[in-house]
């Protein structure tokens, strides 16, 4: 089954009227947004604002109550066979805050397992590809180590390589540096920067404002389940329009 991709559609992801609630609590309110191909979007906002929930709805790790999220022209929240959902998910890279590497597999097996088991890539080809990806994140010498032997920053870089191994056109990052010691944040951001430079479509929830300023094409500021500001980093950092965004930036400077 090949997804119907209209070449003129410049959007990799289109979020339309997405709402989600837990009981009475409205986590996401009528969110409308698009991510263009090759665009790097940084989502920021105060904690509890719905940033992580939003990014997790994009590969349907969270269900939504209404609305649609289309990825390559297909609504990922439409009723569909589990197989089709898995197929869609395999083309959306996801990097977790807590890395979630598979501790029972070596680093290279972490990276090569899913191409073999999900896409049916031959084992030796997947292995070689994994080594290339590990080289790209600077960890080829750790190929035979186990996740438990790596630092947090190294684990997160392996997690990025693992997501890249599925050759996704889009990568989602859910606070990829929040669980790291400060001295390890830089190495992960450097990998993300190089991905952005290669033209990867990226959506990142992060508190790293330096990264947002340098790498993002656009910033979405989210508060109480709504995107209240969408702006270029230039506009956002020098002249935020919404008072909540102004306060957020002021708090960051302290």
């Amino acid at each position: 089954m090949t997804p119907s991709v209209s070449p003129q559609d410049v959007n990799a992801i289109r979020i339309s009227k997405v709402s989600k609630q837990y009981g009475d609590y409205q986590v996401l309110k009528d969110i409308d947004a698009e991510v263009a191909r090759g665009e790097v979007v940084v989502i920021c906002g105060p904690s509890g604002s719905g940033k992580s929930t939003l990014i997790r709805t994009i590969n349907r790790l969270e269900e939504i109550n209404s609305g649609a999220i289309s990825f390559d022209g297909q609504n990922i929240h439409a009723p569909m066979k589990t197989r089709d959902l898995n197929q869609l998910r395999s083309r959306i890279g996801f990097v977790f805050q807590n890395f979630n590497l598979f501790p029972h597999l070596s680093v290279v097996d972490n990276v090569s397992m899913s191409p073999v088991r999900v896409k049916g890539v031959a084992r030796d080809i997947a292995h070689d590809k994994a080594l290339l990806l590990l080289d790209r994140v600077g960890l080829v010498d750790k190929a035979n180590a186990y996740p438990g032997q790596l630092s947090g920053g190294q684990q997160q870089r392996v997690a990025i390589a693992r997501a890249l191994a599925m050759e996704p056109p889009v990568m989602l990052f859910d606070e990829p540096t929040s669980a790291l010691d400060p001295e390890m944040v830089g190495e992960v951001l450097a990998v993300m920067k190089s991905l952005a430079a290669d033209g990867m479509t990226m959506l990142c929830v992060t508190h790293e404002m330096g990264f947002a300023r340098d790498v993002a094409d656009r910033i979405w500021f989210i508060d109480a389940g709504q995107i209240i500001e969408m702006a270029t980093p230039e506009e956002f950092f020098t002249n935020p329009r919404h008072p909540r965004a102004q306060r957020f930036l002021a708090d960051l400077r302290h």
Binding site: N59, L61, T82, R83, N86, Q87, R89, S90, R91, I92, G93, F94, F96, N98, N100, L101, F102, P103, H104, M113, S114, R117, V118, K119, R162, A163, M166
Partner: peptide, 24 residues
């Protein structure tokens, strides 16, 4: 976390169980 990571990579339920969850 482990099940979510497996799902995010495109594994189905039984694949995730067999290769990720049960071995651990």
């Amino acid at each position: 976390g482990q099940m979510e990571a497996a799902k995010a990579l495109g594994h189905g339920y039984f694949g995730a169980m067999r290769f990720v969850i049960l071995p651990q």
